[in-house]
Amino acid sequence: MRRWLFEPVPRGRIAAFRTLVYLFVVADLTVITPWVRTHAHVPGDLYQPLLVGRLLPLPTPTPLLVHGIFWALLVASVAAATGRAPRALGWTVFALYFEWMIIAMSYGKVDHDRFGFLVALAVLPTVGRARHGDATPTEAGGWALRVTQIAVVCTYFLAAFAKLRFGGVDWLWSSVLARAIIRRGTDFADLIAQVPYLLIAAQVGIVAFELLSPLIFVLRGRWRYAGIAFFYTFHLFTYATITISFAPHLVAMASFLPLEKVRPVSWLRARSLRPRAGSGIAQT
């Protein structure tokens, strides 16, 4: 078990994943969920903090608190994406984003696509320094990615557990997807809904997929990457039909990928140095 939990990964993979995660925080604040800032002007009586917000306890959001966290988190995330001061900036981003999510989800709506992403933010500061392209193996980095992967899979498995716990087996042939399509469906979803029993089959398939998701850890090599591709495809169809993106979850799921192989800066530099056809270098 220890060998599996601490399976070494290249430090370059940690560096790439860390940059992706922290840049996503910037995108989340400014593009994906900018509505969180509107809670700054919501009456405090409507604030019903999640359990963790009651246990700590955390303050009731005010304009000063919300806007202060927004700008501090924005600056800290950009700085953390550079890889400098990975522990200090990493813990700062995690603490601020954690409070940001408490503010976001304490008004009656709780999204479960943030779990894996929050775990990633919590474990990345434990790794320490990592440079892009560094092939040096790190057990600490392997543990951080493995814990994030477990959180990603738990998001699926526990979603199926919740469906069966609260909806029972009847959830499988209920009208859940039909109601979702009526409420927020796309033209593509309308075409699918016209096929008899297809939505019921889709619901059975969703629960089966979620219950079997832990098998991703059994797969190796190309088979595992094929499984992850299926996960991403599942969310692509989800967005194409009922416009639910699961963006933070998709970022956390990148912990399964060999991100150290994606080095756009080096790729662009190589292209700029490549001799052009017809140049003096190419002709010699």
Rank of each mutant, 00 (worst) to 15 (best):
T148G: 03
E260Q: 15
L268Y: 09
L219D: 05
L56E: 11
Y97D: 00
T243G: 02
A159D: 06
H67V: 02
S175V: 09
T136S: 10
A229M: 09
L5T: 01
W173K: 04
A16G: 10
S245N: 11
I14H: 07
V123D: 07
F157N: 04
A178M: 10
G167E: 11
M253K: 02
W100T: 05
A226I: 14
T33I: 11
R54P: 03
Y225A: 12
M105A: 08
G141H: 05
P59Q: 12
G168N: 13
A159I: 00
R84E: 01
L211Y: 01
E7K: 11
G141E: 09
F24K: 01
P8V: 01
R87A: 04
L259I: 12
L23N: 08
F117P: 07
T238W: 01
T233R: 06
V147F: 04
V207I: 14
I192V: 15
F161N: 04
S272M: 09
S174C: 04
L73G: 10
G141M: 05
R276E: 09
V265P: 00
T33S: 15
R18T: 14
H249L: 11
A79S: 09
R54S: 13
L273N: 12
M105S: 13
A240M: 13
T241V: 10
A180Y: 04
Q48I: 13
G227M: 14
F117S: 02
V251Y: 08
A27F: 14
A201F: 11
Y107W: 14
E7H: 11
A140H: 04
Q203G: 04
D187G: 09
E7W: 08
R271H: 07
S175N: 14
H67P: 06
I182E: 13
G142K: 01
T60D: 01
F98D: 01
G68I: 04
T243A: 10
I281G: 00
L191H: 15
R165E: 10
G108D: 13
W91F: 15
H39Q: 15
A226Y: 05
R18C: 03
L64N: 08
A178V: 13
M105Y: 12
L164S: 07
P248T: 06
I281H: 02
R222P: 00
Y22K: 00
Q203M: 02
R84P: 00
L51Q: 04
D187T: 14
R37E: 11
S266H: 11
R146N: 14
W173T: 03
P137T: 03
G133R: 05
A178W: 06
A201R: 02
L164M: 15
D111E: 14
D187W: 14
L158F: 15
Q203I: 03
I244P: 00
F231L: 15
A140K: 14
V21Q: 04
P59M: 13
V204W: 15
R183N: 12
G128P: 07
V207E: 11
G168T: 05
